[in-house]
Design a protein around this nucleic acid. Structure first.
Lengths: 243, 243
DNA sequence: CGAATGTTTGATCCTTGTCAACTGCTGTGG
DNA sequence: CCACAGCAGTTGACAAGGATCAAACATTCG
């Protein structure tokens, strides 16, 4: 039996203790509702202080920061299960923006209720800390990539991460996973120019390792991809909780 | 009156509710002791699963990851007040290493007690989440820097961050703050080569903006530094908690 | 049909990396 | 005491990875 907040799974049963009936009720009070947004809709704005927290249910988006000169850095892609807006809940305001790349369905929580929820259900503090450590792990990997990997290694690494994550989410069908972003988005995530990103993607296709076109990413030689990306398959990617 | 875990301040009173007598007692049981290490000592090892958590009390160090080909990425510099080893407490093992650059004094906690502590003092889950959001903010800034800033911008940004942080810690004396790392460490943190980092530091010195030599960083024109780094002074840097 | 958006490709430039050599300093052992 | 090794910092010459510029192509949408 799986406990869940209707369509919004609170967590994976494999990794967390099941919730009591009381907790489920509290969770449902905590949840405000669902929100459907169209592609291109801004979800969070840098400098704002939105009263809401989101969990992505379906669709994809990006979290990003911008420099005064206009350059944009994509921090992470947003996939189903990702949690958005915690910063504004804790710090004075958001430090990054987020935008829907495709149509998205979001699970909306009321920020002010978050602390009430944690206070009445203290063991969830562990969950949050866990979530935090996992997030920190991924950001650290990004830093490693941006700082030390070559263009080819970066793209291979990104494909590998995305592939593993979406596969773990059960979004693999036939030989591909959905990756509806623009090449510009990947370029901004990897700190590369659009042109060079394009040429590097092509290189991976020519090597018959991975192909990304029409919003579909397919990896045909995952071992080779790991070799190129200088990384071992990351088990942690599968552990990301669905809060 | 300030409550504290002896020399290890649990938190800044400005941002957190004071602790009850019970909590202080629990905190002292949680604390195992202090640890003095020499410069060069490894504190955490990637892939290991150390049973301890640390808070830096004095001295400086680095947290870093390495690629199979040997390249090293410094994730953050470790300053007094920084918390180390949470990952291993939550995930299976550490995902990065840490090393003391100078002699350091550390406050040691027992990992297994952490959860007990949080369970008995649930409101500290908030603190941990807060700490997490702040950390995430800084890692996000690093990603922005590595992805989008030029070499000169990167070094200026780093100097600014370090200056603000150490100043907030009260470590500024006369016109300088202590920065005992090697140029190689900064290079590895910024994703630049040693040689180019050296030349860029020199450039900032020639511009009479900032000087770093003999382990002392002095900023003579902080406004200019912000301009170059493409950033506004970051208030968040001052909010980092001393857990 | 034209406008807008995204992808692809080639040519050229430049920021940064790599290589190499030299300095100054410190610690060590003959 | 000096010779020497080792390490961090410094500088110049050169190479290269990736950025920028420019233009063509494909799709979609009004």
């Amino acid at each position: 039996m799986r406990y869940s907040c209707r369509s919004c799974p609170l967590r994976k049963q494999e990794f967390f203790a099941p919730m009591s009936g009381d907790e489920i009720q509290a969770m449902q009070r905590f949840k405000v509702g669902e929100l459907a947004v169209e592609a291109g809709t801004p979800l969070l704005m840098e400098g704002s202080n939105s009263p809401q927290l989101f969990t992505a249910l379906s669709g994809q988006g990006v979290r990003y920061k911008t420099l005064p000169n206009g350059r944009r850095q994509v921090i992470t892609f947003v996939f189903p299960g990702d949690f958005l807006g915690l910063q504004a809940g804790v710090m004075a305001e958001m430090q990054h923006s987020a935008e829907a790349t495709t149509d998205m369905l979001l699970c909306v929580f009321d920020r002010s209720e978050l602390w009430t929820f944690f206070r009445t259900h203290p063991e969830r503090g562990y969950d949050m800390t866990w979530l935090c450590a996992v997030e920190e792990h991924f950001l650290g990997e990004s830093i490693l990539t941006l700082g030390q990997r070559s263009a080819l290694e970066r793209v291979a690494w990104a494909f590998l991460q995305i592939w593993a994550r979406l596969e773990a989410l059960g979004l693999r069908q036939d030989g591909w996973v959905p990756l509806p972003h623009r090449q510009q988005d990947l370029a901004d995530a990897l700190g590369l120019s659009l042109v060079h990103t394009n040429k590097t993607i092509r290189q991976l296709r020519n090597m018959q390792v991975a192909t990304w076109s029409d919003g579909r990413l397919s990896v045909s030689d995952i071992d080779r991809l790991e070799e190129i990306a200088q990384t071992e398959r990351d088990e942690a990617v599968r552990l990301r909780p669905l809060f």
